[in-house]
């Protein structure tokens, strides 16, 4: 009997141990270890010397970092509102018992099921190849098509289109779940009071969806700062022509695993994390502020 009780008392620890041992080593420890690495001048996997804040100071003069940060911010400013707009729009329409909504919803969600590498391959072809439907269409109206990805001006729009195509369905599902938690009686009451569909959307849906919208916006922001797979496939680790597609996710990878500057890459990763956390809190703050007004 005593043994039974002892087992009951230790059981919780035994249950969480397998997870927490791995979590300690591969989840928590790297976060601390990364700070230490960022203060070192690592050469490959061998620990180098302590260089203090040198790696962070280097951020101020590194043009790659400046370009990657501004590209990420520019794309983020475009992607996040468009993503929210499209996904909320589709979700709102598909929440009505409209003909074919199951088909539409499945179709819009299909890109989410596709691996990011395949998405990259598809968009590199569609936007970059002479033998793509786009190329043929432009050829028909007499425009010679050499592919958009060779022109710096078109690289960001190409990434933008790819991101919207891949992720709108995903955000739409989040929005749909949010919409379905709004009680139907609210709309019923609004209708009886003579509100139009648009008014109901503006004064019921939007305020009640505030948190869900903020959630989707934060996810898109985080995704933008961590964007790697699709961008790597579309423009390569160097960011394409004129570094027009160089993003934070790409330079962290490049500095770490192509240049083997582990210290600097860790400093970059931490700065990236600070941007993500700061922007997330900013968006939460704004959405709560809007609510209290």
């Amino acid at each position: 009997m005593a043994r039974w009780y002892a087992w009951e008392r230790t059981a919780p620890y035994v249950f969480i141990a397998p997870f927490f041992i791995l979590f300690g080593l591969f989840g928590a420890f790297p976060i601390v270890f990364a700070i230490w690495i960022s203060f070192q001048d690592w050469r490959g996997i061998r620990a180098g010397e302590f260089v203090g804040l040198d790696n962070y100071a280097r951020l101020f003069t590194d043009s790659n970092f400046h370009i990657a940060l501004s590209n990420t911010l520019i794309l983020g400013v475009l992607v996040v509102p468009l993503m929210v707009l499209f996904s909320l729009g589709f979700a709102n329409v598909l929440n009505y018992p409209i003909r074919g909504r199951v088909l539409y919803r499945t179709g819009y969600f299909l890109p989410v099921v596709t691996s990011l590498v395949v998405v990259g391959i598809l968009f590199e072809f569609f936007l970059g190849s002479t033998y793509s439907p786009l190329g043929s269409a432009l050829e028909l109206v007499g425009i010679e098509f050499k592919g958009l990805l060779g022109t710096p001006l078109f690289i960001k729009p190409a990434i933008l289109i790819m991101l919207l195509w891949r992720w709108v369905g995903y955000n739409m599902m989040i929005m749909l779940a949010g919409l379905q938690s709004i009680p139907g009686e609210l709309y019923e009451a609004a209708r009886i009071d003579g509100a139009s569909g648009m008014q109901a959307f503006l004064y019921i849906t939007i305020p009640l969806m505030r948190r869900v919208i903020a959630f989707a916006a934060i996810l898109s922001t985080i995704g933008m700062f961590n964007l790697f797979d699709e961008a790597y496939m579309l423009v390569g680790p160097g960011g394409g022509v004129d570094r027009a597609g160089l993003l934070m996710g790409l330079i962290i990878y490049k500095q770490a695993f192509l240049n083997f500057k582990f210290g600097y890459a860790s400093a970059l990763a931490y700065v990236n994390a600070l941007f993500i956390i700061a922007l997330s809190f900013l968006q939460i703050f704004i959405s709560e502020r809007v609510a209290s007004d």
């Binding site: 591969f26 990364a34 996997i45 985080i222 996710g249 770490a256 860790s266 994390a273 956390i277």
Partner: peptide, 28 residues
């Protein structure tokens, strides 16, 4: 229980890219 759980959740705020290099060094 609560401390461990909260600690675990708190680490979720840190993006994976931070762990990229340290994890590689551990793996090496």
């Amino acid at each position: 229980r609560n401390i461990l759980f909260l600690f675990m959740l708190a680490t979720m705020m840190i993006p994976n890219s931070v762990g990229l290099v340290p994890t590689y060094i551990i793996m090496a």
